[in-house]
């Protein structure tokens, strides 16, 4: 059987160094730097249009960046094709769910392990583990296109788990979920980074989820970093309050 070990780099850090990205005249990311450690959950927050999704797309190679560099440990992944970045140990989910709709839930998750070079049998074993972690056992044989919305999110996350990345970027995993579903997701995600030794970066607008889940926060506004630190620290930064609540609240 082919070796299909996870994360060939086994790096401790995902490092983003002064990344800049322009869309025509618009500066979507302005010299943004961040550092994601394995085992931690980092929240990436900011108002609409602040560049969160752009940052994820730039890191994962979906969009070329204009300047700056991205590393997984020692390995530079700047402007590499997305599939190479994934193989280097970086997984992601999408803001608008992207599942393989004509494949079963099982195949959706399995194919991520297969693309790591696992045999179908070993891939099935890994897929089942990821499926159990996200509570999808009852849905394995269903086509992904037939699932209820809340479960689609979980299949996407299970698929990313089956890739066995060192770092995982979740783009609004709680978008469109009700409070109950969002809590369920939170409980599933919370123990994962420690258990898997995985660095997790989460973008979300659900502040309740972010504040409870994340060890550290990184705040963007108009493509610039305006704050970093623990949730408590970030809550006290004037620029953050201003970005979220307006100037008057910050002044008062």
């Amino acid at each position: 059987m082919k070796d299909c070990e996870s994360g060939n780099s086994h790096a401790d850090h995902l490092i983003v160094e002064r990344v800049t990205k322009n869309f025509a005249g618009l500066r979507a990311l302005d010299s943004v730097s961040l550092n994601l450690k394995r085992g931690e959950i980092l929240g990436l927050i900011g108002p609409n249009g602040s560049g969160k999704t752009t940052l994820i797309n730039v890191i994962t190679g979906l969009l070329p960046l204009d300047s700056g560099r991205v590393f997984i440990g020692e390995v530079e992944i700047t402007n590499k094709p997305p599939y190479e970045i994934a193989r280097a140990g970086l997984g992601r989910t999408f803001q608008t769910i992207r599942l393989f709709r004509e494949l079963t839930v099982m195949e959706n998750v399995e194919v991520a392990a297969v693309s790591r070079g696992c045999s179908r049998k070993e891939a099935k074993r890994r897929a089942l583990q990821a499926i159990e972690e996200l509570g999808l056992e009852g849905w394995v044989g269903r086509l992904a296109g037939e699932l209820p919305y809340g479960l689609e999110r979980r299949v996407e996350i299970a698929r990313a788990f089956a890739l066995q990345p060192d770092f995982l970027l979740l783009d609004e995993p709680a978008a469109g979920l009700n409070e109950e579903e969002s809590d369920e997701l939170l409980n599933m995600l919370a123990p994962i980074p420690q258990r898997k030794g995985l660095g997790l970066l989460i973008v979300d607008h659900d502040m309740r989820l972010i504040m409870r889940l994340c060890h550290r926060l990184h705040v963007l506004s108009y493509g610039k970093t305006i704050g970093e630190g623990t949730p408590e620290e970030v809550r006290r930064i004037p620029q953050v309050i201003e970005a979220y609540l307006g100037k008057r609240a910050a002044g008062g």
């Binding site: 194919v111 297969v114 089956a162």
Partner: peptide, 20 residues
């Protein structure tokens, strides 16, 4: 299997390491 995945969504396929 990888080809079928790329048929349904080539961006998602690339995000799990498939060279489409």
């Amino acid at each position: 299997l990888k080809l079928r995945a790329s048929r349904d969504d080539r961006y998602a396929a690339a995000s799990i390491g498939i060279n489409v």
